[in-house]
Write a protein that binds this DNA or RNA. Sequence first.
RNA 1: GGGGAGAUACCAAAGUGGCCAACUGGGGCGGACUGUAACUCCGCUGACUUAUGUCUUCGUAGGUUCGAAUCCUGCUCUCCCCA
Length: 376
Amino acid sequence: MKFRLEKTDKHTNARCGTIFTDHGEIETPIFMPVGTLGSVKALHIRELKDDVNADIILGNTYHLYLRPGTEVLEQAGGLHKFNGWDRPILTDSGGFQVFSLAENRKLTEQGATFRSHIDGSKHIFTPENVMDIQRSIGADIIMAFDECPPGDSDYRYAKDSLDLTHRWLDRCIKRFDQTEPKYGYSQSLFPIVQGCVYKDLRERSAEYMVSKDRDGYAIGGLAVGEPTEDMYAMIEVVNKILPQDKPRYLMGVGTPVNILEGISRGIDMFDCVMPTRNGRNGMLFTSEGTINIKNKKWDRDFSPVDPNGTSFVDHEYSKAYLRHLIKSNELLALQICSIHNLGFYLWLARESRRRIKDGSFSAWKDNMVKKLGRRL
RNA sequence: GGGGAGAUACCAAAGUGGCCAACUGGGGCGGACUGUAACUCCGCUGACUUAUGUCUUCGUAGGUUCGAAUCCUGCUCUCCCCA
């Protein structure tokens, strides 16, 4: 995997570039739809490609390991062959799942033990087996196994957690570098900067990650309960240290405003469940603000779902019809909402890229941030 | 014609003397959701009120009782079975 930095904004730290993988190019800034179980919920690959126009999607180590399991994935020839997606894939390591399944987890130096949410069976993740599993899944970009502490962790906990994440990273890298890809194309391992909301920890973590000289770097442990301003501050702290010539991935973030603020602070890659999950729950993101399509006020609004939208669902369906579908529990509603939201997120990333290129990003972004926070 | 059962809030359905403005579903209204255990979760849903509270409700008209959705009587309506 290679990254080419193409332009940096004059007024902000925003930048654009291209990531080259064996499954194709990714133009940054980019938003990556989340496809936890090997599928972006409610969408066909055709819609992802032709309508949403996603360059890369995510998969999740934790979920895919539990089901269908690495044997099936290996027999299939990797996740790309299994799900038919021939563009790049990134897999998360499962570190976040260990955090979000807090009741069942147990962290030790060796790794994390947890119980399957499917059948209650006991499992262990270690830096080594998480690398092996991600080799079997075969994503183009794979993530280090980290601990993701809660946003309100105290300094002591944050520091111990960070040290553990760093020791685990060394083991991840060792195992990764000792093993080969299984399907004939290359994979890249991204370390994950942690450190909660503590500046010195974040700086130390970023410096440690950079010393490992990998193809790209992720910032994790943000948008996990800490104030938004703290999140922005941490991004700034970390991005001062991360190298210019490598992509930076802000994990799990976020709202459209979060993404614009992230871009203007030098983030290149984002992922978030928000467009799909919130979409399935009736929340639509538009360039004018946020809509709860379930609200009664839309029941006779026959205007298009989003007149400014880029996907066909935005023009083919009306708000009133979409409201009717979601109130009636029709599956089509989930599809329309998900396509719309992903289309919007991808548009937001592409428009940012275009604006960075032509020099109009800063003013446009300030104006967009004002509009995007609105509730319609 | 004979026999039986029942009428409770938007719908369905508990409740058979005080803890009942009334369980529980559904529907309705609103909210939440940030590296997806999520077509999920959480509120509200008689009226007025921020709330305490006050007022009006369990087919209908009376009655018994300190007290009635609950007991008694009349009326109205609905359903089932047999002819």
